[in-house]
């Protein structure tokens, strides 16, 4: 039972990272029906950006007290901004002009974009894993036989806070409503006076910024990254988005945490090698019984 609770904690931390990445997939799919294959690489870029910022700040070991808050804030915000801008540039350069092209064209372009980012990172930081400094003291809390690490709390907390902020933005602000309107009907959105280029760019900005935050968290959590890290994580996060119902924000969060839990449990109780099989089996099963995902809405088509 202790093992179960331990894996519950581990799975939630893992899930927090997946959930943050999954939000970007689901937002972009929701607004332009594109599976943005480059998104996983933006996440890896987030780890490298964080690393670069820490280097700039001259931080390579544990920081204490108020300075820690400052370092964390600057690094996370910096990675979010840089990744957000990367996302906006990708949309502007690669996807915008293909908005009315047949679906296959932007999809292939997204795969190409993913290769470009991976190769840029390969060129920048080389082919081997790059260590990520331990900047936060990592005290462990024992709950019976279960240990919770401070960084696990940070992962889950950051994920939940960012999700609440995002949800509030999308459902309660004017721009958030414009984004939802653009996602539901682009022509109608324009007839309301919404500039859809702006709302689509904003979607990329926010989705990529969340991947940037996930990138920081992953560096901190795993202690290293490499240029190809985003491939596997991206695939899992995309699966999470589909599991939760693609296009649905709450679904992406739920899917992310579920995939993290499934992975942690499978690794513990079955075997490491089976975790992908189980994750994708669950996906297939869910889609058989709920084709639009766990929280996906299936509205009748327009009358």
């Amino acid at each position: 039972m202790d093992v179960f609770f331990q894996q519950l904690i581990n799975g939630l931390s893992l899930g927090g990272i997946y959930a943050l990445i999954a939000l970007g997939y689901t937002m972009v799919y929701g607004i332009i029906e594109l599976i943005n294959f480059a998104h996983g690489d933006v996440y890896t870029l987030g780890t490298f950006f964080s690393l670069a910022i820490l280097t700039l700040l001259g931080v390579d070991s544990v920081v204490h007290g108020p300075a820690l808050i400052g370092v964390l804030a600057v690094t996370i915000l910096g990675a979010m901004i840089l990744c957000g801008l990367t996302g906006v540039i990708i949309e502007r350069l690669a996807y915008r002009r293909l908005r009315n092209a047949p679906k296959l064209a932007p999809l292939i372009t997204a795969i190409g974009m993913s290769f470009i980012l991976e190769n840029l990172m390969l060129y920048w930081r080389g082919p081997s894993p790059v260590p990520f400094p331990q900047v936060i003291p990592n005290p462990q809390f024992a709950l019976g036989a279960v240990t919770i690490q401070a960084k696990q709390i940070i992962v889950v907390l950051l994920a939940v806070v960012l999700m609440v902020v995002l949800q509030t933005f999308v459902y309660n602000t004017r721009l958030g409503k414009a984004m939802r309107a653009t996602a539901q009907d682009k022509d109608a959105a324009q007839l309301m006076g919404i500039d859809i280029n702006t709302t689509i760019a904003l979607t990329f900005l926010i989705g990529s910024a969340l991947a940037g935050a996930a990138g920081f968290v992953s560096g901190m959590y795993y202690g290293s990254t490499w240029f190809f890290n985003g491939f596997g994580a991206g695939l899992k996060a995309f699966t999470a988005a589909v599991l939760g119902g693609i296009g649905n924000l709450a679904g992406a969060m739920l899917g992310g945490f579920l995939i993290g839990l499934i992975e942690a449990m499978t690794t513990q109780f079955i075997s490491d090698q089976w975790s992908n099989v189980v994750v994708f089996s669950v996906l297939v099963l869910v889609l058989i019984f709920r084709p639009s995902g766990l929280l996906g809405e299936s509205l009748p088509n327009k009358v």
């Binding site: 004017r174 409503k177 414009a178 939802r180 309107a181 539901q184 009907d185 022509d187 109608a188 959105a189 007839l191 309301m192 006076g193 919404i194 809405e297 509205l299 327009k302």
Partner: peptide
């Protein structure tokens, strides 16, 4: 527009609010 093009996953209220977007 032809074919109505209301925002299907939004309420009547939200649709009207968007009409006043400008």
């Amino acid at each position: 527009p032809e074919g109505r093009h209301v925002f299907p996953r939004m309420t009547v209220r939200e649709n009207l609010e968007l009409g006043a977007y400008t």
